[in-house]
Amino acid sequence: MFDRIRAYVAGFGGSADAENAGLRERRAHNLFEAAAAHVAARAEDDQDQIDETATWVSPEALSFGVSELACRAVIALARERDESPRAVARDLLGLPTA
Results as ranks from 00 to 15, higher is better:
38 H>S: 09
7 A>R: 01
57 V>T: 04
78 A>D: 00
29 H>N: 12
59 P>Q: 12
7 A>G: 02
24 R>M: 06
48 D>W: 06
27 R>N: 00
87 A>S: 12
90 R>D: 09
8 Y>H: 07
27 R>C: 04
54 A>E: 03
90 R>K: 07
16 A>P: 06
58 S>M: 04
2 F>S: 05
10 A>T: 04
48 D>I: 15
77 L>D: 00
53 T>K: 12
60 E>A: 13
4 R>W: 05
28 A>N: 03
40 A>R: 15
25 E>F: 15
26 R>E: 09
9 V>H: 03
14 G>H: 04
28 A>E: 03
67 S>G: 11
84 S>L: 11
23 L>F: 07
79 R>M: 02
4 R>N: 01
71 C>W: 13
89 A>R: 08
7 A>I: 00
15 S>R: 14
53 T>D: 12
48 D>C: 10
15 S>L: 05
50 I>R: 11
96 P>G: 09
73 A>P: 06
6 R>F: 04
21 A>C: 04
61 A>N: 07
18 A>P: 06
57 V>Q: 03
53 T>I: 07
54 A>M: 03
72 R>Y: 00
47 Q>D: 10
60 E>H: 10
50 I>V: 10
36 A>D: 14
80 E>R: 04
55 T>R: 05
40 A>Y: 15
14 G>S: 04
1 M>N: 00
71 C>G: 12
51 D>W: 08
78 A>Y: 01
12 F>P: 02
43 A>R: 04
16 A>L: 11
15 S>N: 08
60 E>R: 15
23 L>D: 08
14 G>V: 02
1 M>A: 00
27 R>I: 00
2 F>Y: 04
18 A>C: 05
13 G>V: 08
53 T>L: 14
76 A>Y: 03
90 R>F: 10
50 I>F: 05
47 Q>E: 14
72 R>S: 01
51 D>A: 10
55 T>C: 06
22 G>H: 14
6 R>H: 02
58 S>L: 03
68 E>A: 15
62 L>P: 03
23 L>C: 11
49 Q>W: 11
82 D>R: 00
19 E>P: 09
44 E>R: 15
44 E>L: 14
71 C>Y: 13
59 P>M: 03
60 E>I: 12
43 A>E: 04
17 D>M: 13
82 D>G: 01
42 R>Y: 05
12 F>L: 10
22 G>C: 05
64 F>S: 05
